[in-house]
Amino acid sequence: MLIEILVSLFLLIGAGFALIGSIGLVRLPDFFTRLHGPTKATTLGIGGMLIASMIYFSVQTGQLSLHELLVALFLFMTAPVSAHLLAKAALHLKVRSIRPYPVESENREGR
């Protein structure tokens, strides 16, 4: 019973953060602000869901289930990298921004 409540709690927290990240993706005004929603909220949302799954399967099967950690670790390592790549691509393409671009763009790497 207690486990059920705990799993439900983590599931709802996870889904809530994922939803907030997606709302941010639709609602925020320009690309660079939109980048913040998915990279942070959605990643934590997944984290919550994976914790829920870890607890659920550990109790259900009676033995420790930790392989969800792999997905979580992988996502926490890749989320900043993809955000960085996306920001770089957007800077390169000069995507519309509500704030002025930083100066000295010649010093930027083209990779």
Partner: peptide, 26 residues
């Protein structure tokens, strides 16, 4: 409206699909 926006949306869609799969597993 721009290509990076679309890529970002696709990336988020991927991550949300993972969440959906975990949910389906439970």
């Amino acid at each position: 409206p721009d290509t990076p926006d679309r890529i970002l949306a696709l990336d988020t869609l991927f991550i949300n699909t993972i969440a959906l799969l975990v949910l389906g597993g439970i």
